[in-house]
Amino acid sequence: MDITPATAASPPPLAGGPAPAEQKATTRPGDRIFLALSRGSGILLLVIMAAIAVFLTVRATNALSHNEGNFFTTFEWSANSTPPVFGIAVLAFGTVVSSLIAMLIAVPVAIGIALFISHYAPRRLSTPLSYVIDLLAAVPSIVYGLWGALFLVPHLGGLYGWLNDYFGWTGIFEYHDGAARSLFTIGILLAIMILPIVTSVSREVFLQAPKMHEEAALALGATRWEVIRMSVLPFGRSGVISASMLGLGRALGETMAVATVLSPSFEIGTSLLDPGGGTFAQNIASSFKESGEIGKDALIASGLVLFVLTLLVNGAARLIIARRKEYTA
């Protein structure tokens, strides 16, 4: 192996003279190979992303040019009729609302479970508990869907009746007897589905909270909850947001479970408890097989909207995390 530094080959710079124009650092074959590999993977990723975006845009444009309805405001999805009429209003509403309900239920519960595992439970309980949580994340979504349709739907009538009795006056919790195949049921089901991932990630973050800050709080006379509030939660804040976004991503794109439970319809009711509605992913899964050329392109257009929605959500999460960066250094 040549151990002479490359610089030795070039003449030493004269005192006061200009530095040598090119002074190449030694590169070793291993470095060059690794550089090529990693740079190549990075470029490949960009190429794939661009290809997907181009494909989606081209096919979507094709469908949109034939659309006789307004893509954003039409309450109808008849992409296979002539002329095709379709709009995403109902899908967007259903996707956003069911995911929001899921987040509202899942995130507080997940934070609670994660804190219990990381700071309250004795070790002989916390280890098996976290194992079970991780296991839940591995259950396929169709299994959740079947459970939702066969167990959750028939058993939610009582809860819905109660909500109707006490909160029916708000309008959004009005319930007329019927199968609980509504957006609210979807929200509950999605909450259960995203609970494990949000819990797992939050638990890992809470476990990494620095001991010295917990001791600082303890030494000031903080109770266990105050220690968590002063040192664990602020430390875990950005991690919990990331975890929630992971969960939200899964909720927005969840397909099979939603398609199994929901009875789709193209109208937006005032009550969350009435059956009907739809989501982007569910609509694609339910209608893809029976769709013709334009119908498929129309579904792709709706998929593109879901893609953009997910990007926006992630961007917003990054903004929230970056806003307090000064304090998390």
Binding site: H213, E215, A219, L220, M230, S231, P234
Partner: peptide
């Protein structure tokens, strides 16, 4: 007790988010 008997640690540990 810890409110009556305060403590300062080896490594400075101000709360980083405050």
């Amino acid at each position: 007790v810890r409110r009556t008997v305060g403590m300062v640690f080896q490594r400075p540990n101000p709360f980083p988010t405050m």
